[in-house]
Simulated scan of single mutants.
Amino acid sequence: MISEPKILKFARMRKIVILFVISILLWSCETDFEVNAPWKDKTIVYGLLEANKDTQYVKIYRAFLGEEDALMMASHPDSIYYNPGEVGVLLNEYTPSGNLNNTIVLKDTLLGEFTAVNGASPIPNKAYYFNEPLNDAYEYELIIAKKDTIRALTSLVENKLIDESDNSINFMSFINPENYGNMRLSWDNLDNGVAYEVKIRFFYEEFLNIQNGHSLGIDSIEWRLHFGIDEFELDYAGESFFSNVANQLVANDSIKRLPGDLKIIFTVAGQEFYDYYEYSQPSFSVLLEKPEYEGNIEGGYGVFSSRIQQEITRNLHFISKQRLEIDPYTEDLNFFN
């Protein structure tokens, strides 16, 4: 058998490739490709119950899809919110034995507006709320009644004082005040609490830096000390306090500052809230996409959980206040006592 010259094989393959490309182009010219899938009602829920708050809020959105810019579509309330007649929002309260104790009807309200960009109209900030007190020993089931029913169940983080100490905080060593010391904080493990965040807020008052200069007002700065699970104690290096103050305040010769008290801010998250937080963190996996989040919203998306936030005022020890005047980190910030 006589073999075909390579040049003829190449020419024949070239014709096949050209015909294939032409057929693809002709097909694409005659067929409209639909980017948007058929519309489907999808409900998105965000709610965090707090047993120590007087008013509770739940955010309920509807997913939307269209040809316009997303911000422009979101500026139309009926694109992202249900109309009052479309949904009813209830909260069932169950005793530890599982008996229905109460049913609370949530009302809708507007909490101002979200600032829009790119020429879109401001987006209304709509929420559902109620004022009835909560019992941290009970479970609560959110029910969103519409054509289909959305349900979510959560327990409450225990409403108990997490830290009962009242001593002042010193970031310098008591034995040798020239050296930095450590601040030790400990707190209780709250029922249904999974993750614990601890922040510190430092208050100070600013004055015009002249003799008998008048007050310019009280201000504060804040930073995180701790975030974790199954940990109920931390040691915070005293040097970090002064470096954080220096990092957040700007030296200004025209003002002087009087150091004030501290607030220790505890935030304790329930299980569903912590799971949602963990899922929302950046992934360093080789996989480009995360699996779809499977939360506790039956028939919808989002998170319905609980948390407790407590702010405890503690005095800043006078040794630390004096140190702010001369510490290498803060000496140019014009603190005085």
Rank of each mutant, 00 (worst) to 15 (best):
53 K>L: 07
335 F>I: 11
51 A>L: 01
59 K>Q: 12
5 P>M: 10
146 K>T: 11
99 N>I: 14
87 V>W: 01
75 S>H: 07
198 V>N: 01
81 Y>A: 02
298 E>Y: 09
119 G>E: 03
75 S>A: 15
212 N>W: 11
328 P>Y: 08
146 K>W: 01
108 D>L: 04
143 I>F: 06
132 E>T: 10
317 H>S: 08
241 F>P: 02
43 T>D: 03
308 I>K: 01
116 A>V: 01
44 I>M: 10
241 F>R: 03
8 L>R: 15
165 S>M: 04
139 E>P: 03
279 Y>Q: 04
224 R>G: 14
183 M>T: 08
15 K>L: 11
263 K>E: 15
243 S>V: 07
313 T>R: 14
243 S>Y: 05
156 L>K: 02
42 K>T: 13
205 E>K: 08
299 G>N: 04
53 K>Y: 03
284 F>Q: 12
65 L>G: 10
73 M>T: 03
299 G>T: 05
318 F>L: 14
93 E>V: 14
186 S>N: 14
295 G>E: 08
219 D>A: 12
273 F>Y: 12
264 I>F: 03
26 L>T: 12
298 E>W: 06
247 N>F: 10
235 D>W: 14
117 V>L: 11
9 K>P: 09
126 K>M: 10
203 F>N: 03
134 L>W: 00
70 A>T: 13
85 G>Y: 06
94 Y>R: 06
46 Y>G: 08
